[in-house]
Design a protein around this nucleic acid. Structure first.
Lengths: 261, 261
DNA sequence: ATCATATGTACATTATATTGGACGTTGATG
DNA sequence: CATCAACGTCCAATATAATGTACATATGAT
């Protein structure tokens, strides 16, 4: 999400942006890497990356792990993330809601949010017959690839949507091009109906159901999803959507706590 | 913890350091603050703080919340923290261990680590008769104030300990001065015995027990603690220490997972 | 009305952070 | 042995980020 302004060639990058680019990259890779590898793969000057990595190491934002000078996200980030989680205390309710959903439907239930201008699965509960889910928890994925994506950008105007989503994200995993106007039409439809369902674009055997979890501003702060085998999904469509709606309503009425419990 | 090198007066602060100083400060405060307040309280130039806050906002590291332009830690930090937690997957084992400990002893059990050069409670499980615990989860506290602190720095040499702990942290909450040499003697004793217990320095009615959880390098990567009423603690000393040792051993044999489960 | 405080914005200055490139390893390969 | 690639360090040059200062607005007290 940071490499958006790659346009100007000769510009220097700001240290802070580079730093978070490194952190995001490590998160995507989900493994420790050498500074050299990081530099090569994000296309940043090696000297800059070494400098930043050392700074981040000395702050506990990064840690040596995996040997050979490899680094990964550090403990400090865990503490900061825990503070966020504690403040916007959605996880407890979220976990029980997903559990309930998965029990009711025997399908895989997910809680999803935007991660910058992409989509990510924040929590997941496997269903009764777990199958290989296409997107793992914590991976960020182009918004147009997902059912939830239609709901998560619905509060934006057409133009804002086009500005928000990186153009290359309309290229689907199979290589086909999703016309932005088609996507926007689906967004508007999802907005009207308060839900979106489709046969997954990412694989060829699942059906996805998504409903919004509305925040204080009234727009979708998150989504609840079910990922099902296609036959199952189509057969149980109405029941599954009912379960999702009910679960979303429960989450909405458990607002962010102001302070400690 | 970052304002250590306040020595040189006329020096400019590096953006990255200031940024993480802001993040750490918000974590300590555990509430949303206006940029102006942040600047005043951390003693940084207002223009710098506004600049950094805006940068961090646009990256999702900070978020507007609480109205009136107040900001707090953002969702991106949660994602990064979750990635850390997923990589060094200690939390699951940790949670069950604390639960077991609290059930066995009916006392408050804690899992503690270093946060930079201070101490913090990472996870806590209240005992049967919860009383007002002096340090909350996520707050960072001077190392010399805690029993665990004696264990967490035991792998350092005397000189390294003195360099590592901010000098002002030897000033105890009551105002008394803890002689660094006294502290170091206690560290060495804790190291020999593989445990440390004392009547809490922070309050006047609890007794603390701490044992190390050793990481791969052999030194205390974390501690397990019990916080008990003084009478109880002294009466059950041997049993409690036995429980702690057993729990620590269990945690040590559930090492950090390399990748996904 | 006057003053003081809290808050956010705008901009020029200059200290310095980012960067490209040189240099020195090491290890693998022909 | 010669060559190449991967890796880390060092350093000078300059683009720019951090800062001080001034400005604008709102609020409340006197």
């Amino acid at each position: 999400m940071d490499a958006v302004q790659d346009e100007a060639a000769g510009k220097r990058a700001r240290g802070l942006d580079r730093a978070f680019e490194i952190l995001d990259f490590l998160r995507q890779k989900r493994q420790a890497l050498k500074p050299n590898e990081i530099a090569a793969q994000i296309g940043a000057p090696r000297s800059s990356v070494y400098e930043l990595v050392n700074l981040l190491l000395s702050n506990g934002i990064l840690e040596f792990t995996g040997g050979e000078g490899r680094v990964y996200l550090g403990r400090k980030l865990y503490f900061l993330g825990a503070a966020y989680e504690n403040h916007f205390d959605f996880t407890r309710e979220c976990e029980t809601t997903l559990e309930h959903l998965a029990d009711e439907t025997r399908e895989t239930a997910q809680f999803c949010m935007l991660d910058g201008n992409r989509y990510t699965v924040v929590r997941m509960r496997e269903g009764a017959r777990p199958f290989r889910i296409s997107t793992d928890v914590g991976q960020s994925v182009p918004i147009p690839w997902t059912a939830s994506g239609r709901l998560l950008v619905a509060h934006l105007s057409d133009q804002e949507i086009l500005n928000f989503i990186p153009p290359q994200d309309f290229r689907l995993p199979g290589g086909e091009w999703l016309e932005p106007q088609t996507f926007i039409a689906e967004v508007r439809q999802a907005e009207r109906e308060g839900l979106f369902t489709f046969n997954s674009i990412v694989d060829s055997f699942t059906h996805c159901f998504a409903v919004p979890v509305r925040g204080e501003e009234g727009h979708a702060a998150a989504t609840l999803c079910l990922v099902t085998p296609r036959d199952d999904g189509i057969a149980n469509r109405d029941r599954y959507l009912g379960c999702l709606k009910k679960a979303a309503a429960r989450l909405e009425h458990a607002p962010a706590r102001p302070k400690r419990s």
